[in-house]
């Protein structure tokens, strides 16, 4: 998983994040390695509790502490470790260089401020501009996301869910960030609105050349928007590759199971194939490979050794020695 260091925007190494609670320690992210090149879009896919959002909060240092604890690892953003920055430096990075979009647009908008002011606020925080210049830039930005001039002075509650998410996108992109982290940006939206918003995000990304991490549980959205995909399970990356290679040829048993449990639109089938069992308790993860109790390929060694990433095709990695061996790559 190595790229020319200059092309790398984000390089996460062995990131481990735990939540320490009264009932035990939640292993939210365990030894995560992830790379993101400039201008790339990475889809981070996984079920609830797989550690996707925790990873995003770790990158932006927005992790609630307590109970969150970064136990180890590095997050190199533009070659500098984000985890070593102080709060002052982080504030200028957040919004300025790394922007984040959350699932529910309502929670990230201030209900008593008009939308153009909210965008202008962001611009003023990161650029030395006057109030009127900021407002003018905000208007341009909102125009770019499809909000007409006459609606600039409206309050968030006067907008529909899709329009609110557009405002959030405008705020996120206002300062031309290098990295945009979108956490389930369209989950709260209807399909036709989702299509609008995704189309908008794709266009803007192209226009601004922003790198993006898209967190989602929808494999369809990833197929349409992402260059690279990472599949997460129980706080670990189990498969990583460029989208085409991974979708054409999923190899980790969990990824295979995940793909099969989505009803296919093209074909009819009577019964969906399911992964047996449930997600493991994040406070009590199985030893070795966290997936081994549910895995049909599991061998005795899987419960002992934690699998490492193995390259099975150029740029396509899986954390499963059994499958890699079957492919003759181990």
């Amino acid at each position: 998983m190595t790229m020319n260091a200059n092309d790398l925007l984000l390089d996460i190494r062995e990131l481990t994040i735990h939540y320490v609670t009264d009932n035990g320690t939640v292993h939210a992210v365990e030894g995560l390695n992830l790379e993101l090149g400039r201008g790339e879009t990475l889809g981070l896919v996984g079920e609830t509790g797989a550690g996707k959002t925790t990873t995003a909060l770790g990158i932006t240092r927005l992790l609630p502490v307590p109970p969150g604890v970064v136990r180890g690892g590095q997050i190199l953003f533009d070659g500098e470790d984000v985890l070593l920055k102080d709060e002052e430096e982080m504030r200028s990075i957040r919004g300025g260089k790394i922007a984040m979009i959350f699932q529910d647009p309502m929670t990230s908008l201030n209900p008593v401020m008009t939308v153009d002011k909210q965008v202008a606020e962001m611009i003023k925080l990161h650029r030395k501009v006057s109030e009127s210049e900021a407002l003018e830039q905000a208007a341009e930005m909102l125009d770019l996301v499809g909000i007409r001039r006459e609606r600039l002075r409206d309050y968030p509650h006067q907008f529909s869910g899709g329009m609110k998410q557009r405002v959030v996108i405008a705020i996120a992109l206002a300062c031309d960030p290098k990295l945009l982290i979108a956490d389930e940006p369209t989950t709260a939206l209807d399909v036709t609105i989702q299509a609008q918003v995704l189309e908008l995000m794709k266009n803007l990304k192209r226009q601004f050349g922003t790198s993006m991490i898209l967190i989602t549980h929808d494999l369809g959205i990833v197929a349409e928007t992402c260059d690279k995909v990472g599949i997460m399970y129980a706080g670990r990356l189990v498969e990583y590759g460029d989208t085409k290679s991974l979708y054409d040829n999923p190899n980790h048993p969990y990824t295979v199971g995940l793909f099969k449990s989505v009803p296919d639109l093209e074909e009819d089938c009577d019964e969906l194939s399911v992964i047996p069992g449930l997600m493991p308790d994040p406070m009590d993860l199985p030893s070795g490979c966290a997936f081994h109790p549910r895995c049909s390929h599991a061998e005795e060694a899987c419960s002992r050794e934690r699998p490492v990433m193995i390259e099975i095709e150029p740029g396509h990695f899986i954390a499963c020695p059994v499958r890699a061996r079957a492919l003759g790559k181990a």
């Binding site: 009932n23 035990g24 399911v274 047996p276 069992g277 449930l278 997600m279 493991p280 308790d281 406070m283 009590d284 199985p286 109790p293 549910r294």
Partner: peptide, 15 residues
């Protein structure tokens, strides 16, 4: 039978 739970993965936490 495939709907019957196969692995008791949650455990060890006090209720």
């Amino acid at each position: 039978n495939e709907n019957v739970e196969m692995v008791a993965t949650t455990g060890g936490r006090k209720t």
